[in-house]
Design a protein around this nucleic acid. Structure first.
Lengths: 229, 229
DNA sequence: AATTAAATTTAGACAAATCTAAAAAATAAA
DNA sequence: TTTATTTTTTAGATTTGTCTAAATTTAATT
């Protein structure tokens, strides 16, 4: 086994893995990730994030310069993808084999994703017949960390509890853009649909994993998101 | 849900759970468990064990007085049994569903046994069709922590890699008892058969999980063990 | 450009689980 | 029953991950 291979097999603490995962997700949506974002995502304090950034840097899992921002290294991305792979495979297992509802598996998968055995997860993948997406529609990375599938839909068709990344705008009129700008929605913004009102088909969205905003059906039809990571 | 029920659902650290499990196992074999035994079992230091004993006592998981010994409380036993249940169900899953060999599942199960969801393990039990024993022949406690199966056999018929607890002696002559006493074998002693020599059917035993001793076929035929925990 | 506000980092502390080295208690041996 | 040995416990440190409060840097406003 090569040295690089052995490296990727190293075991990190659950806490470190959670940071890597969170940064990976935030990076995908925002491009730029901030200390506050991470603190918010992980329900922790900015000071704790700074502490951890230093540790992750020391292990070459991310690139970091104080006050200047940070991003995952090649290695950090690889580790994050393996955690995501495990999380989603376990979710699939819970729903397909143990009859759990898709809305009750996340918490359990948060624990299972930290089980370290590589062989276990590859065997599980095989047992489940190599599923491409988890029960929420999120794609499952293969054993090399690659996604096989990317879906693009408008906001109305974004599955519940799925987070999409804005990939295109239909109506690009200044009025539309002004509205989107005001609501802090732009290319790459992460959006989750929280509710669709039967009355007028207006949508309640969670934007950047933080603010809750409401948009009309018309707006929703003109915002396209891709969900894949 | 009753108060007592909620109590048993509480989550303990993996470390605490490991201590409870180790003490449970040692208690079953020796009756009396010592600080050194635990340190030995968990590959740790006696001082660390003492520290943990105090914490476990504070949480009413064991009865403990300094220098005077300790044993699991009712609650501690209950928690230990749930860990053992989880460990063995996961081992069964790994062998029966994921095609692992019985000799490679222990390590993985050591991690999986700390996943906390009660619902998960009960669903897994159902999925596996309520197996009675794990791949090593050890019985799996049911959701109430009860074993459904107790087998009593003489040492010659104790399955390999199974640990039995001495439950009776056939030939109780003074000579026999003297021999057993010398080899530190008595009621309740935990024994595992390591090897049976084809030549004279003599047995090599691991006694109290520590010493290796040899006994004749005649002796083995007169020592009965139950294996169930 | 100067000032204010926000984000980030440092400094110092704490809880959990461990360790080493030394002290205290219990047990075994002379 | 003293003495010696072993076991157990205490005292004090260390590591990991977290926190609060204060300081520093960057960004935003006037």
């Amino acid at each position: 086994m090569s040295e690089a291979k052995r490296e990727s097999m190293q075991k990190y603490s659950s806490s470190k893995e959670n940071y890597l995962k969170a940064i990976f997700h935030l990076q995908k949506s925002d491009g730029v990730v901030t200390t506050n974002d991470v603190a918010n995502e992980l329900q922790t304090r900015p000071a704790s994030v700074t502490d951890m950034l230093k540790k992750l840097k020391a292990q070459k899992l991310l690139i970091y310069e104080r006050y200047k921002g940070f991003k995952l290294s090649q290695e950090g991305r690889k580790v994050a993808l393996q955690i995501i792979r495990k999380h989603r495979l376990w979710e699939y297992f819970l729903v397909e084999k143990l009859q759990f509802g898709w809305d009750e598996v996340h918490e359990i998968a948060e624990e299972l994703e930290h089980i370290s055995s590589r062989k276990l997860i590859d065997r599980l993948d095989e047992f489940l017949d190599y599923p491409k997406t988890d029960p929420h529609g999120d794609p499952i990375p293969d054993s090399q960390g690659r996604f096989t599938l990317i879906k693009q839909v408008d906001l109305l068709h974004l599955p519940p509890n799925k987070t999409g990344e804005v990939s295109g705008i239909g109506d690009q009129s200044p009025e539309m853009l002004e509205l989107l700008k005001h609501k802090q929605i732009g290319l790459g913004t992460r959006i989750e649909v929280k509710k669709i009102f039967a009355f007028d088909h207006s949508l309640e969205l969670k934007v950047r994993n933080q603010s809750i905003v409401t948009v009309s059906e018309h707006v929703a039809k003109n915002v396209f998101v891709k969900y894949d990571e």
